[in-house]
Design a protein around this nucleic acid. Structure first.
Lengths: 388, 388
DNA sequence: CACGATTAGTTTCTGGGCGGAACTTATGCG
DNA sequence: CGCATAAGTTCCGCCCAGAAACTAATCGTG
């Protein structure tokens, strides 16, 4: 069989790669262009193995040889291997209570197109049909990743309070309706995985991702893998107590971390029912009431960061989400919160703050699909996997 | 080469096992006697592979064939494979501020002998010499595991407040003094790993271990592996706030979880400076002051359990330590604390309470040695390991 | 400019380990 | 006493990884 990589611009089915090939692809995907020698050293594989594996990945159109990079001193220059992003496309879908956000990316999770539309209905069957409609508009994708703000276990949406779902087998339904392998996960979990592969947390063995938005979300990478609870629950830090005299929280108590951070609570505490943008303007203009509310929120965020760092002592803490302006206006208080909470030298915490726009959510759905495709978790029939 | 397993009662050096053999040994070690067919199914290995691997492990004296267990209906009975615990011995050492506890176990972490003596000095060299003396009294061990209550990273004791050590390369020193491969880790981490291999948490993919003693310790298993912080710090939950009007805590604030649970704080809050045993007697006798103090401690323990469960949603929470009588006398309040903290159905938390005596600490040192021996982490020269 | 030093990448060969197919063994059942 | 059933074994071939030896591309130096 002769396979001509040059003519196969986009493949829509994923080849079954031997383990070493998966590892090599992953290494280049996560750490950027690398030479064969470099990959061999990192993965502790022999150079001959790398020649073989690279050849097969190039033949399959997944890698391409890029520029040659001259050595510093003597020696033959390295030929850099790049991921050929165009080889595959993935569709990411994020569901909220009333809207659907979609993004098509290439294999490197780089967005190619985005779309956004209102949800026609919250009925699971209709939502599946709507996702299938979106998928039809972007044919030829290798995998689909759907994310939502609920509890997901093995492709089953155990519950989602926004969509008011219970036990919806979304993965099977979307796979069936689209005939495309589909992954489903909690949105924060998917974002965490995305940042761990394609973001500033690329390849770290431990990472904490904190998203500040309408609510607060936390995702953890430990030992190089995503922490997924045994009942599908993502990590919950947000009802840790900051000050029992704090604002009323949705959980019934007062002064939880989330009670300071949830957008609607921040706005409620301000006079005149402002929008979030207006509230930020007030802080920047020096309004003392707004300053107080945002500083308390910033302090709570610091407590959250410190608490997370106490628990898993990660290599990096990544702060992201639509609510990031909070850090911008109240970073001193964030750091006060960290200092009061973290039990070691706060300088050990590498805090990375990332601008965020809402399309990241859909993109991380595509990243989820990429991840599950490469690791093989997305196949409908689980196949032999020797590792525990 | 003819190797006669029957004559080699105790080997003192660990054979280099191929990966499949390690996996098989581990499976039997953790899950008890299993048939070849059963192991093959669990590990997704072929039956021929199991024949081969089992033969080699039996030849090396690590496994033995035990009884044959008849099938329920038809079919040839299974031949159960047992770990031959006597094949190897391991020494565990636990260091406190002023004492040394030692335990010799077999390969299944079953204690064979224990010893206890005062620490002659806190000077690192002298402690190493004392450990070497102990090791001389128990010759022929395959590995040594040393644990202490400090921060350990890669065999280096970054600091230990009890021994007042900073940056002591204990692993290298003990290995050098004894010529026996040695592992060093934090005591709670080692206990967690021990419970995960040899205790009620055997083989779980996620597990939280909470020890209540002079202080509170937490260890986590996530994704089948021990959570070790990137700076050597074990997980810290204990300064999470319970009630800002609570007792003064060593960390400077009031009402942390640990401020309720530390033994000396509990005793300080009682009149007459009782011993722990006396304090327990008072509770059991109905003394209202003691009841109040223990119930508050129990509630704080419940908050801790709920917080841990919120974060990693483990398959099981294991409660252990010298301070366990607390649970015995105040379990209703523990469950109140869990209910007020855990954000899902508390029935999802499988809580396992284990009696504990202090020798467990030394035994878990031996378990640490067993673990590092089998996984290969204990070898002085790190050898090629393809996995990330 | 020739030649060695240096490092990247390739080819060839070999061996180990794993699984498929077919076989043997040990039991229950009619 | 077959026959079904399932455990365990033997045999064989294949895949895949590494060792050794090779070619390729560059730099430095006399």
């Amino acid at each position: 069989m002769i396979s001509d990589a040059a003519t196969r611009l986009i493949a829509s089915s994923w080849p079954k790669l031997p383990e070493a090939a998966r590892d090599v692809l992953l290494e280049v995907l996560i750490h950027g262009p690398l030479s064969r020698a470099e990959i061999a050293a990192r993965l502790r594989l022999s150079r001959p193995t790398l020649t073989r594996v690279a050849k097969s990945l190039v033949a399959q159109g997944l890698l391409v040889e890029g520029d040659t990079r001259p050595r510093a001193s003597a020696g033959r220059p390295s030929e850099m291997l790049h991921v050929r992003g165009a080889a595959h496309r993935f569709l990411g879908v994020k569901l909220t209570a009333d809207r659907l956000f979609a993004a098509v990316t290439d294999l490197t999770a780089t967005p190619i197109a985005t779309a956004e539309e209102p949800l026609r209905s919250r009925d699971p069957d209709e939502v599946v049909a709507q996702i299938a409609d979106v998928a039809r508009r972007f044919p030829g994708v290798t995998g689909i990743g759907v994310t939502l703000g609920g509890v997901v276990l093995d492709g089953l949406v155990a519950r989602d309070e926004f969509l008011r779902w219970t036990d919806v087998p979304l993965k099977a339904a979307v796979t069936g309706a689209t005939r495309v392998p589909t992954a489903v996960d909690n949105d924060v979990q998917a974002l965490t995985a995305a940042e761990h592969w394609f973001g500033p947390g690329a390849g770290l063995r431990s990472l904490a991702v904190i998203t500040v938005g309408a609510g607060v979300g936390t995702g953890l990478i430990v030992g190089g893998g995503l922490v997924a609870g045994s009942h599908g629950l993502p990590p919950h830090f947000s009802h840790t107590l900051v000050d029992a005299k704090g604002p009323q929280c949705g959980c019934g108590r007062r002064g939880c971390i989330s009670s300071y951070l949830m957008t609607h609570v921040v706005l409620q505490r301000l006079t005149g029912n402002p929008s979030y943008a207006e509230a930020l303007d007030r802080v920047r203009a020096g309004d003392p009431q707004a300053r107080q509310v945002f500083d308390e929120a910033g302090y709570a965020l610091g407590v959250l960061i410190g608490t997370v760092a106490n628990v898993i002592d990660p290599q990096k803490v990544l702060l992201t989400g639509e609510g990031l302006p909070l850090y911008e206006v109240s970073s001193p208080l964030v750091h006060d919160g960290i200092e009061d909470t973290y039990e070691d030298d706060p300088d050990l915490i590498e805090l990375d703050v990332r601008p965020f726009d809402f399309s990241e959510w859909a993109r991380s759905g595509a990243a989820l699909a990429i991840k599950e495709t490469i690791t093989g978790a997305i196949t409908e029939w689980p196949q032999g996997n020797r590792r525990r």
